Computed example of a mutant assay.
Amino acid sequence: MEQEFWTTAVLDFLIALGVVLGGVILGGLGAFITDEYPMFKMMRLAEQLKIWAMVAAIGGTFDTIKNFEITILGGQLNLAFQQIVFIVSAFLGAHTGTVLVRWLIQGGF
């Protein structure tokens, strides 16, 4: 059970990271093709994709919120804590992707 918890937390982190990095790379390619300034577009995309990366990583906001409500009202605080860890893990993955993009294109501004 504990291994499944950590596996899910790591997967949430990496999925959110991948959504941000993949979206930024493909969005930058699209900006280049359409003759826009790719680095500026990539930074904007990284910021805009953060919330969507979190949603994709945790499997949809409504399911997570519903599970969170059920576990708190049911008195299962350890499961509520697990849901919080999954959300924080997804946030850290999305934020890490944004920081990596900023670091990679820092010379472009």
Rank of each mutant, 00 (worst) to 15 (best):
G27H: 07
A31Q: 08
N67D: 11
G60V: 03
I51V: 15
T8R: 12
I72F: 12
M39F: 08
H95W: 13
H95C: 01
G27D: 08
V20D: 02
L77W: 13
M39V: 08
R102N: 15
V88P: 02
T61N: 10
F40H: 14
T34R: 06
F62P: 00
L77T: 14
G107V: 08
W6G: 06
V20E: 04
G22Q: 11
R44T: 13
V24P: 00
F5Q: 13
A31H: 08
M54L: 09
R44L: 10
F40N: 15
I25A: 09
F68W: 00
E36V: 11
W6I: 10
L49V: 06
A31R: 08
M42R: 05
G75H: 05
T64D: 00
T71L: 01
A56V: 09
T96L: 05
F109T: 13
E69D: 13
A16D: 03
V55D: 09
I58R: 03
G108V: 12
N78C: 00
G93D: 02
V85Q: 06
G23E: 07
G18N: 06
A16G: 03
A53W: 03
L21Y: 04
G30W: 09
A46T: 04
A57D: 04
A80H: 08
N67Y: 06
L45S: 05
G59D: 04
F40G: 15
G75V: 00
I33K: 15
N67S: 11
K66I: 11
T34A: 07
T71E: 12
E2T: 01
G22M: 08
L104N: 07
A53C: 06
I33F: 09
I70N: 14
G18S: 13
A56R: 02
A80R: 06
I70M: 12
G28T: 09
Q106K: 14
I87Q: 02
L92C: 12
V19N: 03
I58E: 00
I15Q: 03
F109N: 11
Y37H: 14
E36M: 13
A94S: 15
L29E: 08
W52H: 06
G93N: 04
L29H: 11
Q82S: 11
W103C: 04
V10D: 02
T34D: 09
F5I: 09
V55E: 07
F5H: 14
G22L: 08
D63N: 13
F91G: 04
Q82I: 06
E4H: 10
T7P: 00
V10N: 05
A31S: 14
Q83Y: 10
L92F: 14
W6K: 05
E47R: 11
F86K: 13
I51W: 07
V85Y: 00
